[in-house]
Computed example of a mutant assay.
Amino acid sequence: MKRFIDITLAVISVVFFMPLMAIAVISILISDRGPIFYKQIRVGLHGKEFHLFKFRTMCVDADKVGPYFTASGDKRITRIGKFLRKTSIDELPQILNVIKGDMSIVGPRPNVPQQKQYYSDFDWQLRHSVRPGITGLAQSTLRSLATEEERLNLDLSYVKNNSILGDFKIIVMTVKQVFFKGGN
């Protein structure tokens, strides 16, 4: 049932957000040379790695000149990238990951493989017993303000208590975060 809901919401989202995604593509092309999309290896269901898609918000080869994470005021982020991140528009290409089956609309955000070192083996396996999501409990409540420990606790809480109704609540909370609390 969850997969059916994911596909349905993803297809509706593609249609709904197509004009916004077209504007993002044009803005990236005008403001900065280089690819429109950024793809990164992430860890999905049962530890299977996949390529996560985003609109590129950083300078070309940013991952070669800095860490896998960004910090406040990161100089690698482009001008248009700041806006795309603040509004979470950079995440819209992940709808394709949902359609492909790599991700769900709701679930823990997918980790990069390097983050495994921060988990016990049990927590890592538990966290990856569900598909990662475009949004999750941590993103809908604390956004980027969550510490690693808070994010882990919220992700594990989601895995242990996930439900269709809970997913719809997280979607509503995420919309409130993005539109009424200033985005990311």
Rank of each mutant, 00 (worst) to 15 (best):
M1W: 08
K2Q: 10
K2H: 13
I5G: 00
D6T: 01
I7A: 01
I7N: 00
L9R: 15
V15T: 13
V15R: 13
P19Q: 09
L20A: 14
L20G: 07
M21L: 02
A22M: 04
I23Q: 03
S27Y: 06
S27F: 09
L29E: 02
R33K: 14
G34M: 07
P35R: 11
I36Y: 05
I36C: 05
F37K: 08
Y38R: 02
Y38I: 02
K39T: 11
K39A: 04
K39I: 06
I41D: 14
R42Q: 10
G44D: 00
L45G: 00
H46W: 01
K48F: 00
H51I: 01
L52R: 00
L52S: 03
F53D: 01
K54E: 04
K54D: 07
T57N: 06
M58Q: 11
M58E: 05
V60G: 02
D63W: 01
K64Y: 01
G66A: 12
D74E: 06
I80D: 04
I80S: 11
I89P: 08
D90E: 10
E91G: 04
P93M: 06
P93T: 05
L96H: 05
D102T: 02
I105S: 05
P108Y: 14
P110A: 05
N111V: 04
V112K: 12
V112H: 06
P113S: 13
P113L: 06
Q115S: 04
S120G: 04
D123H: 05
L126E: 08
I134W: 11
G136E: 07
G136H: 10
G136P: 09
A138S: 15
A138T: 04
T147R: 02
R151F: 07
R151Q: 15
N153E: 13
L156W: 05
Y158E: 09
V159S: 08
K160E: 15
K160W: 11
S163G: 11
G166M: 09
G166N: 14
I171K: 13
K176R: 13
K181Q: 13
G182L: 07
N184W: 13
